[in-house]
Nucleic acid binder design. Structure first.
Lengths: 226, 226
DNA sequence: CGGTACTTTGACCAAATTCAATCACTGTGG
DNA sequence: CCACAGTGATTGAATTTGGTCAAAGTACCG
């Protein structure tokens, strides 16, 4: 998690595994790798969308804001994932959640590259589907279901054995992602702890004891023909 | 709204104005125009995503379902707009809400066409942004704000004068789109009626009396650099 | 005219928010 | 090294919002 600088083609396994194809070749396009401190913004709502970005290291939070300060976190982006897709101007703000390395690539350059363009296209479609997941979470799930869904997303899809999670986000961020308040998130986690689904001593280090049960609470959407 | 069959290049003004570029030329690609009856499905979650679709006439509803039947409507697609973007398989179900004409185009063909591909790309990015709007609605807005947001979206962005809306959707569909129940939607509309923001005699024909006030209730997200 | 489907309204209830207090951990200065 | 702010998390009590259940109301259709 802390191998200081990394050039993207030499990204560590955990990054490559998430998105094995990007970037295909750092040499043939104009990209730059930049460090952002915690809470530092990568772009802000209203900015022209000139580049696409990849998290090389750390974690980036993409969010929208209402005038009165209410915030909806749209995406939590970990290493290997792309973000910052927009037609003309960003409607979201992206900020590093912890000190992070972000690789940015001119959008037109990316579009012109036959190696990269289709991969960006695929990433956009994945992002779109992810947003649909979020709509279901926010529109139709209870507080407990929302928190369970987030935990299972962080745990990864396929686990049946207990997993240990290091949460990249605070309770406030969980709440703003799940459309809840910190108190409700905290209560949901406490309830899960009490019923033996998870365990934790400190807030950011959670043991998922029963992934199958948690997944069933999470109410994954159905993907089958009915 | 009812000019029976139409070939897409001759789409009526209201369709062209929404998306003037698609399809560029019906002759040079393999597309077909098909009629769907009310409640008829265009595709179902789990289906392979082989085509992209455009509503030529009518209205299509894209939604996701949880196992227990809860539904989240993801998009309400009117004439001129594209839908059915997915990487491999659809995670959503699309159905005609009323008898509709839908123009479908093989995805690979569309990707291969230099005239069409960039327009599809733009439509996908618009869709993505629309989904982010929805996330804000569902995650951070009150019932009244949600209903106001929907009405203003249907009214169009720029209106200051009173507008007349013919709702393409029922209360149930409004509710499933806004993450509410029909009762709450109905109460919100009644409250708006009582406060003189809107008026209506029958459920699907609504007069927006005060667009500016309604817009301010809707709490549009901010798009400016802060 | 009667039936069905959809909407509205009301009364009550439950879930989540709000407000407030306490707790736990971190870092700072005496 | 320890006391003490300061921050974030948890827990509790009261309140609010929206959901549930039930009863009318309204329009449409045979």
């Amino acid at each position: 998690m802390d191998s200081s600088f990394l050039l993207l083609p030499d990204a560590p396994a955990y990054a490559r595994s998430r998105n094995p194809q990007f970037p295909a070749n750092a040499a043939d396009v104009s990209m730059h790798l930049r460090r952002y401190g915690a809470r530092q913004r990568i772009f802000t709502a209203g900015d022209a969308a000139r580049a696409i970005h990849e998290v090389a290291q750390g974690c980036v939070l993409v969010s929208r804001h209402l005038r009165d300060g209410r915030r909806q976190i749209i995406d939590i982006v970990g290493p290997g994932r792309l973000f910052g897709f927009a037609l003309n101007h960003h409607s979201c703000t992206a900020e590093a959640i912890v000190a992070s390395m972000v690789c940015s690539l001119d959008r037109d350059t990316a579009q012109a590259s036959p190696a990269i363009a289709p991969r960006v296209h695929a990433a956009i479609l994945r992002e779109l589907d992810h947003m649909r997941d979020l709509a279901v979470i926010l529109g139709r799930k209870s507080a407990l279901e929302r928190v369970a869904t987030l935990l299972m997303a962080l745990a990864g899809e396929e686990t049946h054995r207990p997993v240990h999670l290091l949460l990249p986000i605070s309770r406030t961020e969980m709440a703003d992602y799940l459309g809840l308040t910190i108190e409700t998130v905290s209560r949901s986690l406490s309830r899960m702890k009490q019923t033996g689904l998870i365990s934790f001593r400190d807030a950011e280090s959670i043991q998922v004891l029963n992934p199958d049960e948690l997944r069933s609470i999470a109410q994954e959407a159905l993907e089958d023909a009915a």
